[in-house]
């Protein structure tokens, strides 16, 4: 029996749905849901985590992330401009910095900032305490990544934009600030969002600085609860807490991109 083209297509599509449903069903039936729920979804534990997980842990995660992102963005932009500078030593320093800090684990950098700087400058404190240390510690690494992204963004702005700005009498600096960099940032919104999401998760490294009840963030909070209650439920809740941050973030950025698409 020979099937017609449309019959073949329908059959193929049907089979694909069948496989999908079969896999889901297998997982549903094979897993031991009672034991799973007991280990990961104890309602009483979930209840006990609120509201602290939101009012303290999630809040701190967001703060650490934004701090590190802001620091990385400013420093990364400076590094990117140094990379593109006409002054050779600026280029060397920026390149060396980027290569070094991209290669080092964020944990190590955070540790060095948290414990190295107080030893090096015993008279001074990092402004903002734990928050400042995390913003700088994570920001130093983020800056190295962002610098390369921003540099690529600047170079992706057509040469004619700078030329047009200069022929209107703008200085190089003014042209960069009002014409090139704003366009570069529109180009790098998607990769910078990635960086922001990565930072959200990297903020969990804050524990190496020894956080307190006031400065605790989501992961540490979840792990403390895990040890406390000898149950994995807090980890599941912590995971969901991260999604509360990252999912709306992706949505906001998608909107932003759409808005800028018009002005590209």
């Amino acid at each position: 029996m020979k099937l017609r083209r449309r019959q073949r297509e329908r059959l193929s599509l049907g089979l694909q749905y069948l496989v999908f449903i079969a896999v889901i069903a297998a997982v549903l039936f094979a897993a031991d849901w009672d034991r799973l729920a007991d280990a990961f979804f104890r309602v009483d534990i979930i209840k006990s985590m609120f509201p602290t997980i939101i009012t303290v842990a999630l809040r701190n995660t967001v703060l650490y992330t934004l701090g590190a992102f802001a620091f990385g963005l400013v420093f990364g932009t400076i590094l990117a401009l140094m990379r593109l500078s006409r002054v050779a030593p600026y280029r060397w320093v920026a390149t060396a910095y980027i290569e070094l800090f991209r290669g080092l684990p964020a944990l190590l950098v955070l540790f060095l900032v948290g414990y190295g700087i107080p030893i090096a400058f015993p008279e001074r404190e990092i402004p903002g305490g734990v928050f400042g240390s995390i913003a700088i510690g994570l920001g130093l690494t983020a800056a190295a990544y962002m610098a390369e992204t921003i540099r690529a963004g600047i170079q992706a702005v057509p040469k004619g934009q700078m030329e047009a700005a200069r022929t209107l009498g703008m200085s190089h600096f003014t042209a960069m600030r009002t014409i090139v960099i704003p366009q570069a940032f529109r180009i790098v919104i998607p990769p910078l969002t990635n960086e922001l999401i990565l930072l959200t998760k990297d903020s969990s490294l804050a524990y190496v600085l020894g956080v307190t009840a006031q400065t605790i963030e989501i992961t540490k909070f979840g792990r403390d609860m895990l040890n406390d209650r000898v149950n994995a439920t807090p980890l599941l809740v912590a995971g969901l807490a991260y999604l509360i941050i990252t999912l709306p973030l992706s949505q906001v950025v998608r909107r932003l991109e759409l808005r800028y698409a018009k002005a590209r």
Partner: peptide
């Protein structure tokens, strides 16, 4: 920069600033 203020330049590829409205293209400089 000062001399260029007295010289207008029109490019083959227009080189309008895409992130600005037409009006702002004309006002920014």
């Amino acid at each position: 920069d000062a001399v260029r203020r007295g010289i207008g330049m029109v490019f083959q590829s227009f080189n309008l600033f895409p992130h600005l409205t037409v009006l702002n293209n004309l006002t920014i400089a």
